[in-house]
Design a protein around this nucleic acid. Structure first.
Lengths: 219, 219
DNA sequence: TAGATTGTTAATCGATTAACAATC
DNA sequence: TAGATTGTTAATCGATTAACAATC
């Protein structure tokens, strides 16, 4: 039974489909064609159909796709029908921001614990969760069936904490530290490198400026 | 004078090169070959050479690349030799986290102003910057030569605020709201969709679980 | 000069788009 | 049945990798 591997390019587009379908659903739209969806999302209808057909036929010839059904199926593919318990390591502003973000809860991501090595932050509460010292992390993960650890700590400590997480058998790491984490196969890492994102923006600003300067010179 | 357009795939890799080269530089490494760098970064040497050669020849046959020089050149390509003034719109935890992030300053991104529509937050200070009411945004952008607006507000207000920013002639938007912003050509938008990132993680966790379940069944 | 390693061209691979037969 | 639109195969495009001549 050979399962074809789905490319990460496709996976990366699923959340966006999910978002648009959720909005359509909320607006009471019942059916949509790949053509209509393509105009809304500014991608090709071909790509939409190809993407969905990686997972089986969700549509019906002559009709299109049922919004509610497709929404649910994509949610299921993304694993949003299961619950995932997560802890946040690093109780600074970013950690607090993520802990307070209620939309995660709606998608089955349960904020279960928070840790910090700074004694001043220990004991503080974020959305009903008390910040604990780092020493209690391993025990807490074991006792509370934690799937995901969110790293909102500086890169200097991130590597070391990641090693502890791997050792205790964490399933996934959502990494906000500005460093690449090397973990064994089977442990999932998703990194959000904010400054990389900002640098890309900077490049595109300046590229645009330069193009315009050239055009002015031509005149 | 036909300028070849650099693909966003390449641009997206530049910040990572920049980061590794910065670390090598700090460690006092003087020269590095594409082969060595490829082992460090876990990409192919071929890709590294191709990427760099989009911008001209930075290396020397038989020698490799000078770390310091390459680091500077990539920084320049990314526009990090210029300063960019940014304001943060939305003074919640995420906005405060970004405002407090000192590393941006080191790269030439100057935190200049902060705005919120909530009167309770107006007047509060984040790293010496006073939160102002939304009404003052346009005047502030005009007076302070602001390049980038960072949106850390809910999606409901993000679309409306983005329109105001476009109207006043902002150059770039760094968007953390969970919505796609449609802006005219020439205004740069870089979106960080945190829940999309979390959903990708969720997919990969569950994919791995399912693969293992299948393997168990086989036995 | 000999060895190393780039810059660059050519080959391969994968992802996107186009086309259309299948079918609701 | 006729029209619409999917699912899927084939064509195209772009990105990655391999190979090697140029050259430091």
């Amino acid at each position: 039974m050979e399962e074809k591997e789905i490319s990460q390019a496709v996976i990366g587009r699923l959340p966006r489909y999910f978002r648009y379908l959720g909005e359509l659903k909320d607006e009471g739209v019942e059916r949509i064609s790949s053509q209509e969806l393509s105009e809304l999302m500014k991608v090709t209808a071909s790509q939409i159909r190809q993407d969905f057909n990686n997972f089986g036929g969700f549509g019906q010839q002559g009709y299109g796709y049922n919004v509610e059904y497709l929404y649910q199926e994509i949610g299921r593919i993304l694993g949003l029908d299961r619950t995932h318990r997560f802890i946040i390591i690093g109780a600074g502003n970013l950690g607090q921001a993520l802990g307070g973000y209620l939309n995660f809860e709606r998608r089955g991501f349960i904020f279960s614990g928070m840790f910090d090595k700074n004694p001043d932050l220990v004991g503080k509460e974020v959305r009903g969760i008390r910040v604990q010292p780092m020493e209690e992390m391993e025990q807490f993960i074991r006792d509370n069936d934690v799937d995901i650890a969110v790293l909102t700590i500086p890169k200097t400590s991130a590597v070391e904490v990641a090693e502890r997480l791997v050792h205790i058998g964490i399933r996934a790491i959502w990494n906000f530290a500005h460093v690449d984490l090397n973990v064994p196969e089977g442990i999932q890492v998703e990194s959000v490198h904010l400054s990389d994102s900002l640098m890309k923006l900077s490049y595109n600003i300046n590229r645009y400026l330069e193009e315009n300067e050239q055009q002015c010179e031509k005149k």
